[in-house]
Structures are given as structure tokens and as C-alpha cells.
Amino acid sequence: MSLQEYVGWMTRLGRFGESAAAPEHDPRVCARYLELHARWLGGPLEAPVVAVPRGLGFYRDPLADGGAWAWALVGALSHPVVPLAGPEIVAAAEAIAATLADDCGDSLVMTDTFEAEGLGEPTAAAGESFAWLSSPRARFAGSFSEYLASLTADRRRAARELLARFDESAGFRFALTPEPPSEAELTWVAGQLSRQWGEDAGYALAQHLWPVAVAAVRPAQALFMRVHDRDALAYFNGYLVRGDVITSQSTSRNLDLRHDGLGVVIDLKAIARLIDAFPAVRRLDPTCRTGLDDPPSIGVAKRKVVNEDAYKPVLLLGETTPECAAGLPRFVPGRGWVAGTAGIVGRRM
């Protein structure tokens, strides 16, 4: 089915709805995202969805590298929420594998990290079914000083040095607000991403479009950080709010300016602002890693603000797997669940 048909189907099943907790399960947000995608990326997102009974869909995002199947529609979304509980996904594994094999001749699925009810932390039972990726986050309850005190000594020292270097007195301004990007700002973002990523800029821009879509429908669940170096826009970041967790969804920087360490300061400034003005949010997920095939170096700078272990599940189905997934738990048609020899990837914070 088409993406539009998939959203309608999930809505009829009761998996999507205007009152859903996760913004990506709101059909209005999905429709707005698809409109933005068509406008800013040169045409509609045309990627057939393979639908699985019980309300699951998989597709191959045409903007993403590789051929693995991922959760339908949300390929460029950081840590999406799947509208099924963990046991439901486990129970559907055989149907997923059979559907993909019948419709596509390929039973391999390697999703990016996701969240589902009942899968907040790896357990012995869940470890037999899902691979887990360590993607730690920052927890803050109380004052900003108390948050800094919760960091390791090296991170605390680096944070204080960076905050002093990029202080407002040095000409830097940080604003975290619900105000979505203007037409001119989004054009600036697209231009910077094109310069930075070349032919891969479309995928990076799609990441920015998700919080813009959420802001249009659910303004309480999207925030944006603007960083100015005097009069020049230096960074533009987008965040999504789900419950007490705010997720760093997208970032774009001014390539004409070089400020080593400013990216870390943005997360620190966001935490300080959240503590003061958004008391319902108490965790920042900087998305240190979002997929098994991310290189080990990704998110090194982002990890400077984390103080809490967090683990995200990855669903693997099929016998043939890329090297990065070797030894991890998976569902193999004809064999059932195979526990694997490895459990958590990237255990160290």
C-alpha cells in the first residue's frame, strides 16, 4: 500500500489517532510531514509499504542507504515509537518474516532503534528476541548545578569550560522555543545541509521536517534551538518531546563559522532551559547512536552530556545479516528466535 493508505489503515485499526501519545502516530502529523517532504525534497515520498497483520508496516526509505526494511514512514525519525507493545511485536515476528518473504522475496529486516511499550530496558526475556543498542541520555531533576554535579569529573570540567567559552558575554545567544522555522530559516537549513552532505542532504533535511510537521499540529511536542554568534545564525536544531523525554531530532550548522564544542554547549543550554521553563521534561536524548550500522565514532561529542544508561531495541529478522549485526538475537524463518552470542551493542557510555 502507499504511505497515505498505510496511515489510513493504521488509523482504522486504532493504532494511529489524534489523541496518540507519540506525535508520529497522529495522522495529521503524518499528513503534514508528507506534504513537507513533497515540497522540500522535490516530489512525494513514494515508497510502498508492506503491511503486516495486527497493524505493522515496513518499507525501504528511498533516501536512506542500504536495503534493510524499517518501520514504515519514520525512516528519518530518531528513535520512533512503534504502536505495539513488545510482546505483540515478538508474536508478530513470524508473520512479518512470511509477509516480507512472500511480497518481496527478502526476509531481512534491520530496523533502526525504536521504542515500544514494555521495552524500556533489556531483560532476559527481551534479550532473547531483540538486539539492543546503548544510546545513553541526560537525566536532570532539580537545578542545573545538580545536573552538572551528576556528570563524571571529566565531563563536568569540560562542560564548565565550554559554557565559559560560549557565554553570552562573548556574543553568543541561545533560544529554545516552540517557534518553528520561518520560510527563510528552513531555506537556510536546506542550503547548509546541501553544502555539508551533498547527495545525502535529502535524508538530513527529512530529519528536520519531522519537528516542523509536529509543530504545525502539536506545538507542545516540538522545540527549536536557535544559536546566534552575534548577528549570524550559527546553529538551528529541532527537538521532539515524548512524555518526559526530549529527543534531539535534527541539527544544522553554519558552515561559514567554526566553533569546536558549540554542539555540546547547545545540549547543555537546552538542559538549563528545560529545567527552568519545561518542568514536565526531565531527560534529553541526544541520539548518540540510532542504528547498528552507525560507526563507533558517531555521537562522541554528544556523549559529553549524558549521565544515564539507555537502551533501544532493534528488530532483526532473517538469516543473512550485515557484519554489524553478526551474533545478535534475531528471528529466522524455519528456526524461530535465535538468541545469538551478543546482547547489547555499545555498552560503554
Rank of each mutant, 00 (worst) to 15 (best):
E199Q: 15
Q249W: 02
A339K: 12
Q4P: 03
D309T: 06
E121K: 14
H37L: 04
A149W: 00
R218I: 09
V281P: 09
L186D: 11
R230F: 09
A201T: 08
A325C: 12
E183K: 13
E168K: 13
E88H: 05
S78N: 12
D61I: 11
V81P: 00
A51Q: 15
D267E: 11
C30M: 09
N307G: 02
S252I: 03
T287E: 12
E35A: 03
D256A: 11
R15S: 06
V90L: 13
A310N: 12
S252C: 14
S150W: 00
V227L: 02
V345S: 11
M349W: 14
E179A: 08
A342Q: 13
E35S: 03
V227P: 01
R230W: 08
Y6W: 13
T247W: 05
A149P: 00
A126Q: 03
G346Q: 14
Q207W: 01
F174V: 01
G75M: 06
G336R: 13
V265T: 02
C30A: 14
L41E: 11
A21E: 12
C324I: 02
P80N: 04
E161A: 08
R282C: 14
A125H: 10
Q4G: 09
G291D: 14
S19T: 15
W71K: 01
T99K: 12
P44C: 05
P178A: 09
L56H: 02
G120P: 02
P219K: 05
L255P: 02
E183V: 14
I246L: 05
L73H: 03
T177W: 03
P122V: 07
E5A: 15
E323K: 10
S78D: 14
A342E: 13
G57S: 03
